[in-house]
Design a protein around this nucleic acid. Structure first.
Length: 601
RNA sequence: GCCGAUGUAACUCAGGGGUAGAGUAGCUCUUUCGUAAAGAGCAAGUCGUGGGUUCAAAUCCCACCAUCGGCUCCA
């Protein structure tokens, strides 16, 4: 089945869901039911009393059912799915008819959503069509399966959610039912297995199991706390991130976490992001302060602190620092969306002629970093939409030149890229690097962005060869983006099995019996002495239990120590995947580990 | 923020108008063991927080807090 065919099948399944719902709940108002990736959804406005009556939960005594159960819940899925299956058996081919505006409005006179859709169709000058299959007819543009009975192999309702009509929070909230559909039962099962796998890898679960970070109600929503292991991971990644940029001439700077809001009024962020700022009150002064939501204005103030010559450029600052954004409560999600986010940020100030070379450097840094940590990349070249030039600031020639440069460097560096018009920031085009994880999901990570606007707003200058003042170009660049978000992606990508150089515990020495403890601790100390994170598991547990625990903690290497090992002065080495490396002399093992860690394997 | 679900021991979860339950983890003891879970015992909870209904609330109702699924895909 090709993509188009799949889409048609999933869209048909949405019709099937709507038909089943109408059979069970005739007073439901239908809206829309498009196909989406792996499935479909349909938005309904239910009649509360009807839902209560039909799907009333059983009560042993005569206690009233809670008033709150006024919409569908997941318990109803089995019955709906059954009804869908029944209806599908009776379905032949889709047929359609064209109706006039008056006919359409008459048919849907009680359904404000359909009426609104009809208005839209008329405005666009399109034909109004109704599609019918079995006894079910729905306002629809088409795009269905030829033979739904044959094409719809397997489907399953997955979840229920609120969704605003047309995605606008001013509108009424409808009930959305999500489902998934495939051409065969086998594919459906595979998809469900994938969903299970994603659940197992959920960074929130692994963060707890591997003791990486915690959330506390007393500290607050979206404000994760990092344990020793999680902190180690953050710092190792950050040291690497900053180290790669240090090689390209970036210097560390430091800026405070609160600032007068005037800074953001000048930068333009106050107008655009004012709602997301945490406000801070001073008890000593009348200054209005905020927690910083980003670092570019601060770095620009460092640049602005003295007169710059073209000879000084490029000037490159970097700072890994925590920013604070008052994200909507409902959008917070583990480490993926937080209110305290740590950016491995940097800003390069340069002449227009230097953009090219700096981009080359940054792309090299991105490629090195993601290759090392084992993630593939795609690059999205985010350009402005030529249809709506008014959305962007800066003159056309500059934009053209900037986009040209970006395209050129993308080609030169052989990026796996595609262009996306309309995705640029208002102040300049950018390259969005997307990391592809082990389950094939894409995540936006590093984004070098060109900025012509802010340097101008802050009045940044440099003196050129002719002694004239010029405005520098600023390039924003974070390699991981936010460390928290990056970790959420990376934890799920690796399922917690970090490469050796990042593993919080690299080697666990497992003595078989108490009499081997001393030797195990001696080896652990020797490894620690050369900077290897080793520990000896001297609990009074069986070897199997120790192996199991170390494996579950994803410790890369286990060193088993018993009578034979002590006699021969060796260690039996086992990897976390069960592979047996045999008996190695302690020094051999140590050298090999040290070597791999240094090479970031 | 909005819609819906959930909140019971450190963790995973069962139960449910009238002594609070299990498994795992923890602690103690026994066991000293060869590549993914030894055995026994002990201890552990203001049933998210606050209010209400009731003779009685962890259970029912309300509010709040937190967590989870969604809120871009325009028939």
């Amino acid at each position: 089945m090709n993509d188009q065919h799949l889409q048609a099948m999933r869209h048909s399944t949405a019709h099937l869901l709507a038909a089943a719902i109408l059979e069970l709940l005739p007073n439901t108002k239908l809206t829309i039911g498009p196909a989406i990736e792996h499935g479909f959804y349909y938005d309904f406005e239910f009649n509360k009393e009807e839902v209560q009556k039909v799907f009333k939960q059983k009560n042993n005594d005569n206690r009233p059912v809670s008033e709150k159960i006024d919409t569908l819940n997941a318990n109803a899925f089995a019955r709906i799915e059954q009804k869908m299956a029944e209806l599908l058996k009776t379905w032949g081919a889709f047929s359609h008819r064209e109706v006039t505006e008056k006919e359409a409005k008459d048919i849907y006179k009680d359904n404000p959503y359909k009426l609104e859709l009809i208005e839209g169709i008329i405005k666009k000058g399109e034909k109004i069509t109704l599609y019918k299959v079995g006894d079910f007819e729905d306002l629809c543009r088409g795009g269905h399966s030829e033979e739904p009975k044959k094409d719809i192999g397997a489907f399953k309702l997955l979840s229920i959610a609120g969704a605003y009509w047309r995605g606008d929070e001013k509108n009424k909230m409808l009930t959305r039912v999500y489902g998934t559909a495939f051409a065969s039962k086998k594919e459906l099962e595979e998809h469900l297995v994938m969903l299970e796998e994603a659940k197992k890898r959920d960074h929130r679960k692994l963060g707890k199991d591997l003791d990486l970070f915690v959330l506390s109600d007393l500290v607050g929503k979206g404000l994760p706390l990092f344990t020793p292991k999680g902190t180690l991971l953050r710092e190792l990644l950050n040291d690497y991130s900053q180290g790669l940029r240090e090689e390209k001439g970036f210097s560390k700077v430091w800026t405070p976490h609160i600032t007068k809001n005037d800074l953001y009024k000048v930068s333009g962020h106050w107008d655009k992001f004012g709602k997301e700022l945490f406000l801070v009150k001073s008890q000593e002064t009348t200054d209005e302060m905020v927690m910083k939501p980003m670092n570019c204005p601060h770095h620009q103030q460092i640049y602005a602190s003295r007169i710059r010559s073209y000879r000084d450029l490029p000037i490159k600052y970097m700072e890994t620092t925590t920013d604070y954004r008052d994200e909507k409560a409902g959008e917070l999600l583990g480490l993926a969306r937080v209110r305290s986010l740590t950016q491995d940020d940097s800003h390069a100030f340069c002449t227009p002629e230097q953009i090219d070379a700096i981009y080359d450097e940054l792309i090299e840094v991105v490629q090195t970093f993601y290759k090392t940590i084992g993630m593939k990349l795609r690059a999205r070249l985010s350009f402005r939409d030529p249809q709506t030039p008014e959305k962007y600031i800066g003159d056309d020639a500059l934009w053209e030149k900037a986009q040209e440069i970006i395209l050129k460097v993308a080609k030169k560096n052989k990026l796996d890229y595609y262009t996306a018009e309309g995705e640029a920031a208002f102040y300049g085009p950018k390259i969005d690097f997307m990391a592809i994880d082990a389950l094939g999901r894409e995540w936006q990570v590093a984004t070098p962005q060109l900025d012509f606007v802010q340097p101008k707003r802050f009045g940044l200058t440099y003196i050129d060869q002719d002694g004239k003042e010029q405005t520098p170009v600023m390039i924003h660049f974070a390699l991981m983006g936010s460390i928290e978000r990056f970790l959420s992606v990376y934890i799920e990508h690796t399922a917690g099995a970090f490469p050796l150089w990042l593993a919080p515990v690299q080697v666990s020495l497992l003595p078989i019996a108490d009499r081997h403890n001393e030797y195990a601790e001696k080896i652990a100390k020797e490894l620690q002495a050369v900077g290897i994170r080793a520990e000896a598991d001297v609990r009074s547990e069986r070897l199997q239990a120790k192996i199991r625990d170390a494996t579950l903690q994803k410790v890369p290497f286990m060193g088993i120590i018993g009578d034979k090992e002590i006699a021969d002065e060796v260690i039996s080495v086992r990897k976390r995947n069960g592979e047996d490396l045999g008996r190695l002399a302690a020094t051999t093992f140590l050298t090999q580990l040290r070597n791999d860690i240094d090479k970031k394997r």
